[in-house]
Design a protein around this nucleic acid. Structure first.
Lengths: 214, 214
DNA sequence: TCCATTATTGACTGATTGATCCATAATTAG
DNA sequence: CTAATTATGGATCAATCAGTCAATAATGGA
């Protein structure tokens, strides 16, 4: 390509630094992406029209296609951004408390939004898994990049819990880590199905109690 | 309405017995409904076009609208039929073994299809919950009619497990029943996400082991 | 000031959507 | 046979879909 300036990769979006400057974008790309995320999160991919997106993002049609490519690319970027944010939060809560079991409890309780509207949206990642299953390679790959991160941190904390005597040494930590991740998706789907805060808290506590040595 | 004969309500579909007979249906309604179910199950509601349905059901467009109303009515009937079938299977497996914990184990293992294609479809009910959340009153109502049936049977078997000394008397059986139902959805979603038979079996066994007195 | 480039706006496109219309066929009661 | 009724198949519909085009605006460098 001729006449192209240097490229800087910042936060997954390509910032072109052209030799000759062009008209600057009028909207906040990150804000628009966040707004798009909310729509996809609430309604899923197929049920979200580009018109829905334009209204929520408060930009024109051509701006969407200029800045994000197309509907699918926007969805993938929204989901990736969402996963990055939530995974970071999960890891923080898991690793926060000094007690491993308290960390796991914080992880599970952290999934449960107090606000009814927010809680009823469930988890966008779970929604994506349910909508596309194993049918979309790009989503499978994205999932494969996110899930193991939390998994290994869980294994770590579970080992730590065994060393501290909080968790039975006979328990297989990999199985336990998978079980906790399954519990997370179970909680998210229960939330999406309309479960209340108390019911979800009870579920989370019950699950954590199952890991305690007695 | 004039000239209308008696109505018999059979299996949720209205069988009209008109005074004057009309042209009989050429296709098997139940078979067509089963074929429609597979499509909705695999792809979800929004991503399924009426054309998809016609091809799978092997009927003409007008036949679909005559026999089932419209796309939404067909979906609701398919989901209801699906739920009736699966719930019946769940109850059978739960109540089959003489040991309550073995029943719960059979319930969970029974969710895991051996066939890869079938397993990767997950559960249509879970898919519906994920796709519509609490947004569709008809689906919320349908769920509210199905979930408590299994729940009360679970409570029953858990009580029985406590009486037999398989389960700790200190365990709250309602919490445990909810936990098992959450585990079921977690398993279904893991299956939809591509988990293999072995991984799912391990998850099921781990969950059941958490209920055992030690 | 003019140029090269990108952003914005609104009209537009062809395809697909769910659903209906209509002509014809098949059935049984009378 | 005729009448009444429902089923079928093909054409068709208006609405919506995702995406493109083209005209204009804004920017900084030359």
């Amino acid at each position: 390509m001729e006449g192209e300036g240097s490229k800087l990769l910042i936060n997954q979006s390509i910032i072109v630094n052209p030799l000759i400057m062009a008209r600057p974008r009028e909207f906040d790309r990150e804000l628009a992406l966040e707004r798009a995320t909310r729509v996809f999160w609430a309604k899923g991919y197929a049920s979200t029209s580009t018109e829905d997106l334009l209204v929520a993002m408060r930009i024109g049609r051509q701006s969407l296609y200029n800045a994000f490519g197309d509907k699918r690319a926007l969805y993938l970027e929204a989901l990736e951004r969402y996963q990055r944010g939530t995974t970071s939060g999960h890891l923080q809560r898991l690793k926060g408390p000094s007690s491993p079991l308290a960390g796991i409890e914080a992880l599970l309780l952290g999934l449960i939004a107090e606000d009814d509207g927010q809680r009823a949206m469930g988890c966008m990642g779970v929604g994506a898994a349910s909508e596309f299953g194993t049918g979309d390679p790009a989503l499978v790959e994205l999932r494969a990049k996110v899930v193991p991160v939390l998994f290994s941190s869980l294994v770590e904390r579970l080992h730590e819990g065994q060393a501290r005597g909080e968790i039975d040494l006979a328990m297989n930590v990999e199985d336990a880590a998978s079980f906790i991740q399954m519990t997370m998706t179970g909680l998210q789907l229960a939330a999406r199905s309309g479960a209340g805060v108390d019911a979800l808290h009870a579920l989370a506590h019950f699950a954590v109690d199952r890991l305690k040595i007695d």
